[in-house]
Nucleic acid binder design. Structure first.
Length: 568
RNA sequence: CGGGGCGUGGCGCAGCCUGGUAGCGCACUACAAUGGGGUUGUAGGGGUCGGAGGUUCGAAUCCUCUCGCCCCGACCA
């Protein structure tokens, strides 16, 4: 491709709306352009990258035995009523009506459509297991779209669905998909991790998320330094950290702590560290209120808390008035001793001795509190987020934390959809069997942004080769004046194309600096420069985007040299 | 949904307080010079100042309504 025949539209300035690197760079490269909130146009340059991702995903899905198909974006409301999700899915579901008033949703996901398809198409256990997938546009009306295509409302997703005669078959396919996903991210040359995950609103039992690692990621992943354990911190089990029973050595004592409302205030006033304090959060229960007691330096994991018996779902913190009515004092002075509402104590808080907590009286805290002696610890649960340094839940090593961007998620759905939609096949026994299902998603558009988050510098994008819009940039120096340079570059351009190399020839009448900057901004992995000096020496100049030194290569060897580079 | 901010040419912004009929940089067009890291000069094209209503002799500027966009928050007492 010649730049003169391509649409290259880079900008020097960063659009004001872009917050994170990948969004800024995608705009500056001219890969995307916002049409309206959370909705983007992909330019020819951007689409090249998108297609690379799609094709790798497609190849690996095919290799794993999944069959590609294409389902509609616009889906009739009736299907969503069947599964109950028309009302459950919430405001993220974009609803619309046609001219005769019939209701539709723009598909945010396709469980309903595929299950409807499967119940018509699949009749016998002999057709199972079967996995179908598509690469297609989805729409989710996000509360707050942000970060460009990282969290957009319209996006492209690869979604796959598998159908089975029993759970054992589902488990097998699930493992095949897990392996296929690992193969995909490995081929994309992205640093990633597969982690245990919550199955969330889509439902089901087993679930893994695939995260591209990047410091700017929105998710926190906990992993063991000694085993393969990795989990989203939403899910990671938090252990107490201490095996021995706490031993009391102090007696309980009340301290005036006027104006202290936060753990930080109390620590300062009483000159202790937060690990020796507890905080008491009050949430709504199915009946009345429940207090959650955590170590002062730990944070509540809402997901864990709302799964506990008695706690109202979704988790709702009690407001000041509710707390005053039940306890007599407001937030900031709450503590376990003498608390008139039921308590759930976090494992780590339950192993404290001689600790500090609110006195349930405005402006006072207790020190030297001990469980058993001063207050009963009847109900101990895991309700906190893990932190770095916690013991790994599998007993091997300690946990570290990493930031990641969720780009893939696989679930074992079980019969959640097939049951409500009556998707059955006849089994060997001649009876109808509800098909257990699996579903497997990859955010194609998000991968592009995540790849940039992981691979860029202050000059621009550094594409991993499998994602690059072009493999090689060919830059002539002063081609306008020098016929020799023009002829040599044109000849090399033809030669590279003939060798099957995807080359971008910058034939614009611009100064070298402009070419260098543009090619680095859009992140072409390999660069060849042709100039008078080199021609005299029978050489061209090679440089990799992620290296800082130029390499002189004899003109006659450059194609082979590049082929070698491209195969690494 | 709550809070904050912003809408002026394709992009980045000034002008608004104190009303007098729109400007700068980048980008774009033409010509010339330059020619290994966003070069320079000259000459151009492009904006009913988000929209509607109001105040006024006169509104980008003041008032009212409205639409759109961005950021933060929506758990740590």
């Amino acid at each position: 491709m010649k730049v003169s025949q391509f649409h290259l539209a880079t900008t020097r300035e960063t659009p004001a709306e872009a917050e994170i690197s990948s969004h800024q760079l995608m705009l500056r490269c001219g890969m995307i352009r916002k049409l309206t909130s959370g909705i983007y146009v992909w330019s020819p340059l951007g689409l090249r990258v998108l297609r690379k991702v799609e094709n790798i995903v497609r190849e690996e899905m095919n290799r794993a035995g999944a069959l590609e198909m294409l389902m509609p974006s616009v889906q009739p409301a009736e299907l969503w009523h069947e599964t109950g999700r028309w009302d459950q899915f919430g405001p993220q579901l974009l609803k619309m009506k046609d001219r005769s008033g019939r209701e539709y949703a723009f598909g945010p996901t396709h469980e309903e459509v595929i299950t409807d398809w499967a119940r018509h198409e699949l009749k016998s256990y002999k057709q199972l297991p079967a996995t179908f997938y598509q690469i297609q546009t989805k729409f989710r009306d996000e509360i707050r779209p942000r970060f460009g295509v990282m969290r957009s409302r319209e996006f492209i997703m690869k979604d796959a669905y598998s159908f089975h005669i029993d759970d054992e078959s589902l488990q097998q396919t699930y493992e095949v998909m897990h392996a296929a996903y690992s193969a995909i991210f490995t081929r994309l040359k992205l640093k990633f991790r597969a982690v245990d995950a919550d199955s969330g609103a889509i439902g089901g039992s087993q679930s893994h998320e695939f995260h591209v690692l990047a410091d700017s990621g929105e998710d926190l992943i906990a992993y063991s330094d000694e085993s393969g354990y990795a989990a989203n911190t939403e899910m990671a089990e938090a252990l107490a950290g201490i095996d021995t029973a706490p031993i009391a050595s102090e007696s309980i004592q009340k301290h005036a702590t006027p104006g202290c409302h936060t753990i930080g205030d109390v620590c300062k006033a009483l000159e202790v560290t937060a690990e020796r304090t507890v905080k008491t959060l009050v949430v709504e229960a199915e009946e009345g209120l429940i207090a959650l007691v955590l170590r002062g330096d730990h944070s509540l994991n809402e997901l864990k808390a709302e799964k506990l018996e008695g706690v109202k779902t979704p988790l709702q913190l009690a407001d000041e008035d509710q707390i005053k009515a039940a306890v007599g004092c407001g937030t900031g002075s709450l503590g376990p001793v003498g608390l008139p509402i039921p308590m759930i104590i976090d494992r780590s808080a339950a192993v404290l001795a001689d600790f500090i907590g609110g006195a349930n009286e405005k402006g006072f805290h207790n020190s030297g509190i001990n469980w058993g002696r001063d207050v009963a610890a009847d109900r101990i649960e895991d309700i906190r987020h893990v932190v770095a340094g916690d013991p790994s839940p599998d007993g091997k090593g300690t946990l570290s934390l990493l930031r990641g961007i969720e780009v893939g998620h696989i679930f074992q759905l079980g019969s959640k959809y097939s049951e409500s939609m009556n998707a059955v096949v006849l089994g060997e026994d001649g009876k109808a069997h509800v098909m257990p299902m699996g579903c497997y998603g990859i955010g194609i558009t998000r991968i592009v942004a995540a790849a940039i988050e992981q691979n860029h510098d202050d000059r621009g994008v550094i594409w991993p080769l499998p994602l690059a819009p072009f493999q090689v940039a060919l830059l002539p120096m002063n081609m306008k004046k020098s016929l020799r340079v023009r002829e040599a570059t044109e000849a090399l351009y033809t030669e590279l194309q003939d060798a099957g190399i995807d080359v971008l020839f910058d034939d614009r009448p611009v100064r070298p600096g402009v070419m260098f900057n543009d090619m680095e901004l859009i992140g072409i992995p390999h660069r060849i420069v042709v100039g008078e000096r080199g021609i005299d020496a029978g050489e061209v100049e090679y440089r990799a985007r992620n290296e800082s030194d130029n390499i002189q290569v004899p003109m006659a060897e450059i194609v082979d040299y590049l082929k070698k580079r491209l195969n690494n």
